[in-house]
Amino acid sequence: MTDTWYASNANDDAGQHRGWLLGHFIAPETPGSAVRNTGDLEIKWGIHPAGQQRPEWTADDQRTTLVLLVSGRFRLDLTVGSTTLQKQGDYVVWGPGIDHSWQAEEDSVVVTVRWPSIALVKTP
């Protein structure tokens, strides 16, 4: 591969960075890192078995997020409301300052896009 393009499979690459395929955290030693490391956005291929959840809420996230359902049934709880993605192609978008948690109600595959790609500061 060259530094200007990269081809692979999301299922194969997802395990390297908890499902994230693009973003500021793609390390230089990662295949295709020259075009996959970016501060502009993050893209995740999320494979979630039924019952898997993120029970804790994000805290003061200042990015915009889109979650797109590929298959399954996937519930998102936002500080401003809740929605369940249940039909292929269903999606939800929320802006900075809205926190979330989620649960896969069935085996689910979702694509998540966040922008910009910024390192979050974790408080002790």
Rank of each mutant, 00 (worst) to 15 (best):
72 G>V: 05
98 I>Q: 03
41 L>V: 04
3 D>I: 11
11 N>S: 12
105 E>R: 06
23 G>N: 14
42 E>G: 15
117 S>W: 00
45 W>K: 02
68 L>R: 09
10 A>H: 08
124 P>I: 00
12 D>S: 14
2 T>P: 00
97 G>N: 08
97 G>P: 04
124 P>L: 01
57 W>P: 08
5 W>Q: 12
100 H>C: 09
83 T>P: 04
47 I>P: 08
87 K>V: 03
38 T>W: 13
26 I>L: 10
95 G>L: 02
65 T>D: 08
8 S>H: 09
109 V>P: 07
63 R>P: 02
18 R>T: 02
9 N>V: 12
53 Q>G: 12
105 E>P: 05
63 R>Y: 02
59 A>V: 14
66 L>C: 04
105 E>G: 01
22 L>K: 03
106 E>F: 06
69 L>D: 13
5 W>P: 04
111 V>I: 15
20 W>C: 01
79 T>Q: 13
50 A>M: 10
113 V>W: 03
52 Q>R: 13
79 T>V: 02
61 D>C: 00
34 A>H: 09
56 E>P: 03
32 G>W: 08
14 A>R: 04
97 G>R: 01
7 A>Y: 01
5 W>E: 13
46 G>Y: 08
10 A>T: 07
117 S>I: 00
71 S>F: 03
99 D>G: 06
10 A>D: 12
37 N>C: 13
53 Q>E: 15
39 G>L: 06
41 L>F: 10
20 W>D: 07
108 S>Q: 13
40 D>K: 11
2 T>H: 05
27 A>T: 10
57 W>R: 09
93 V>C: 03
109 V>D: 10
46 G>V: 08
113 V>Y: 02
29 E>K: 00
33 S>E: 07
101 S>Y: 01
87 K>P: 01
116 P>C: 01
99 D>I: 02
